[in-house]
């Protein structure tokens, strides 16, 4: 079980992006974290996985515990060893590696004896990847890259899998596939913290949901309740067509800006 209490995160020593976030992922469950662009979803994940310092960020207050053991002082390799796997925003596969190599690097901290069995498991889960093991991963489609990123995270047999907007930029049909895969992975025994803007997809498979706004949790309810909530429907389920479209524009603009900087 993952427990976050009163988490405060600052970037560059002064920019407070998380203002006391508390959140729990019980064993065996799928928990969703929703929020608009810039709400602070990614900083939550970076805090859990020890990647804040890469972005000149730091935990200012609060605690993160995995099965009762504090993990907020661990560096990124330490959190992987503790049993946390993650699929970063934007997939971040190694484009110049083959598919096989991408999966093998995911098993960097795993027992050597487990690698072949896990490769088999992932190639069964993603038959598309199996056919193209020796191909360079950069040529995969967006959906296939997302599957590869998920497979890579599974190679270390994490207890808890963190997914940062896995549906981003994918066609509806592919989003369905990813959704089904998350369910399947969860059924095989991995807890999931799912960060999404696609509330429809996320809430349909999770037990619990949190809504984050400018660094604070503003709603913390069972997923079924959130699905029926008026505000949530309006803001996150894309029922206001123009609103949904403009969100996406903002996102693309931000992406480009980040590349340039």
């Amino acid at each position: 079980m993952l427990t976050i209490e009163g988490l405060e995160v600052v970037y560059e020593d002064v920019i407070l992006v998380l203002k006391g976030v508390s959140l729990t992922v019980p064993d065996g469950e799928i928990v969703t974290l929703l929020g608009a662009n810039g709400a602070g979803k990614t900083p939550v994940l970076r805090a859990i996985t020890g990647l804040l310092d890469v972005h000149r960020g730091a935990i200012r207050k609060g605690s993160i515990n995995l099965d009762g053991k504090p993990i907020h002082h661990l560096d990124a390799p330490g959190t992987v060893a503790a049993g946390i796997g993650q699929v970063m925003e934007g997939r971040r596969i190694f484009v110049d590696f083959t598919i096989d190599e991408n999966l093998r690097i995911g098993a960097h901290t795993a027992d050597r004896g487990t690698i072949e069995a896990n490769l088999d498991r992932i190639y069964t889960l993603f038959p598309i990847l199996a056919q193209r093991r020796k191909q360079v991963a950069g040529y995969l489609s967006g959906g296939e890259q997302q599957m590869l990123a998920i497979g890579r995270a599974l190679m270390a047999e994490p207890k808890l899998l963190l997914l940062d907007e896995p549906s981003l930029g994918l066609a509806p049909l592919i989003v369905q596939q990813i959704r089904d895969l998350i369910v399947e992975i969860n059924e095989q025994g991995t807890s999931v913290l799912l960060v999404e803007q696609n509330a429809n997809m996320a809430l349909s498979i999770s037990q619990h949901g949190y809504i984050l706004e400018t660094g604070k949790v503003v709603m913390d309810k069972p997923a079924a309740v959130l699905r029926d909530d008026e505000d949530v429907r309006e803001f996150y389920l894309g029922l206001r067509e123009e609103g949904a479209a403009s969100f996406r524009d903002v996102k693309h603009y931000k992406r480009r800006k980040r590349w340039l900087s």
């Binding site: 020890g50 390799p77 992987v80 993650q86 970063m88 971040r92 690097i105 270390a156």
Partner: peptide
Amino acid sequence: LAIRATASDQETALAQGVK
């Protein structure tokens, strides 16, 4: 493989547990 991963994308290498 880990050296190559580091060369290609340090943050992602870290996320795989590479020191």
